[in-house]
Design a protein around this nucleic acid. Structure first.
Length: 276
DNA sequence: CTACCATCCTGGTTGC
DNA sequence: TGCAACCAGGATGGTA
């Protein structure tokens, strides 16, 4: 379930286990995910020491000694687990298996194979085609109403589509866009450019608040599994609108409760009386 | 610029 | 119970 908070949770779980460690063994179980792995992928990773693990949008960046970076995206179904039971059989969708010099095993599992991995030159990380056009990080300092209004200015598309667009704001996915719009009290159908002034302030705050609360909920489950089962952390129990069609709005007593409709090819969940 | 569609895959759920 | 249709947290590229 990898949107920004899930990826952030994974990065926080991976960092203490990988930073300073050597990748003693790397095995790729197939030649590709969404894209082919780079040439000699596993061999080029083996023996490298991890310097730092960070996140940009929904991408994981593993900085290695020798000035290369392992770039990783989890797609729709990607998961990473640390130290499954010793010697446990591989799942058919465990595509990449890493063992560190501390003896910990890390598995990249991705049933739908929409994820990707690449090994790139550190000096040109942010020139990578998948990273160079990403919008700003919503949790960075300076992401306030005025800044967000500028990002949305002149966009005639819907607010929902604008927030899902990684080139406008990086890291938001369907769940957190729906949740943010609910807390901001803004309709997903509203034209993006109409969000300025106090509406923009509300939206910027809602985005940050929702993401931070989700990270808090996800972070609480990190133990020996960075991310186990399909359900990350506890945040799914805090959804106000996402996947709650027909359920009562947590904020008002509107008759039909939360509604769902398709927008930009994705399900949008919202409360028509609260969100204008 | 914008809306819409198909596409890459597999698996879980729903409905007949 | 069996099976087919449908749906899914992402991202891109094409068309009108």
């Amino acid at each position: 379930m990898p949107e920004l908070p899930e990826v952030e949770t994974i990065v926080r779980g991976l960092a203490p286990r990988l930073e300073g460690r050597v990748l003693a063994s790397v095995r790729a179980q197939r030649a590709d995910l969404r894209f082919p792995f780079p040439k000699d992928f596993a061999q080029r990773l083996e023996g490298r020491r991890v310097v730092r693990v960070t996140r940009r949008a929904k991408y994981i960046l593993v900085y290695l000694d020798g000035s290369e970076v392992l770039l990783c995206h989890l797609g729709m179904s990607g998961r990473i687990s640390v130290a499954p039971e010793a010697g446990a059989a591989l799942d058919p969708h465990d595509h990449v298996v890493v063992v560190t010099d501390a003896g910990e095993q890390i598995r990249f599992n991705d049933a739908r194979r929409f994820g990707m991995m690449d090994l790139i030159d550190e000096a040109r990380v942010f020139e990578h085609r998948l990273l160079r056009n990403l919008g700003p990080e919503p949790l960075d300092e300076g992401f306030d109403g005025q800044f967000l209004a500028r990002l949305l200015a002149d966009r005639r598309t819907s607010l929902k589509a604008a927030l899902l667009d990684q080139q406008i704001v990086a890291g938001m996915g369907n769940i957190y866009v729906c949740e943010s719009l609910f807390f901001a009290g803004l309709s997903p159908r509203r034209r993006a450019y109409t969000v300025r002034g106090s509406r923009a302030v509300r939206l910027a705050l809602a985005v940050r608040e929702v993401l931070l609360r989700a990270i808090d909920a996800g972070g609480s489950t990190i133990r020996n599994h960075v991310q186990a089962s399909g359900e990350l952390g506890y945040f799914q129990h805090q959804w106000a609108v996402y996947d709650r069609e027909g359920r009562p709005c947590p904020n008002c007593r509107c008759e039909r409760g939360i509604r769902r409709f398709v927008q930009a090819g994705r399900s949008t969940f919202y409360c028509p009386s609260r969100q204008r």
